[in-house]
């Protein structure tokens, strides 16, 4: 263990991905499953290497996001890239044919405007966002059925 202590990088905030990978390799070499790093301020970082399988980093306890909600239809949700008061454009109409990069709305905060852009070519099948309403990050603005 003492040899490992000397090799593990000094813990000052969240280690870089390179450091994490290095620490994970050291864990495997030392035959250890978990390591806990902490600094003088109480910050902590845990790592766990999958028990029998060698090598890969399981990450610093940063789990994946919640399971994706199953969407029966094939349309795509176009989400607000920022929060703000939503101003829809003329393209935000059911039936409108849109191309990749088209702007269907603006998220406005004072003079700041962040465009809501369509990621794929297709047809607007639903307008979920409401004009003039304060809208949060990640809220669905329109749904687009991609062109075949």
């Amino acid at each position: 263990m003492s040899t490992m202590e000397n090799q593990v990088p000094v813990f000052e905030g969240i280690p870089s991905s390179e450091d994490l990978a290095r620490i994970a390799d050291l864990l495997v070499q030392a035959g250890l499953e978990t390591i806990e790093l902490s600094d003088g301020m109480g910050a902590r970082c845990f790592m766990r290497v999958p028990a029998p399988a060698p090598a890969l980093v399981s990450g610093a306890q940063v789990a994946t996001a919640a399971a994706p909600v199953e969407v029966p239809s094939s349309d795509i949700a176009v989400k607000a890239p920022y929060f703000g008061v939503l101003a829809l454009t003329d393209l935000a109409e059911i039936g409108t044919v849109v191309r990749q990069g088209d702007v269907v709305g603006q998220m406005r905060i004072g003079t700041l405007q962040v465009p809501v852009t369509v990621p794929v070519e297709g047809t607007v099948v639903d307008v979920v966002g409401q004009e003039g309403v304060l809208t949060g990050y990640g809220a669905v603005v329109v749904r687009v059925e991609p062109a075949a």
């Binding site: 929060f83 703000g84 905060i109 004072g110 949060g136 990050y137 990640g138």
Partner: peptide, 24 residues
């Protein structure tokens, strides 16, 4: 108001975003 993704750097630690959120 949702102001960003799970990463704290883009939500609870986003100074500019918090000021804009207060404004809006």
């Amino acid at each position: 108001l949702c102001i960003g993704p799970a990463a704290a750097s883009k939500s609870y630690l986003d100074r500019e975003g918090l000021l804009l959120a207060a404004k809006v």
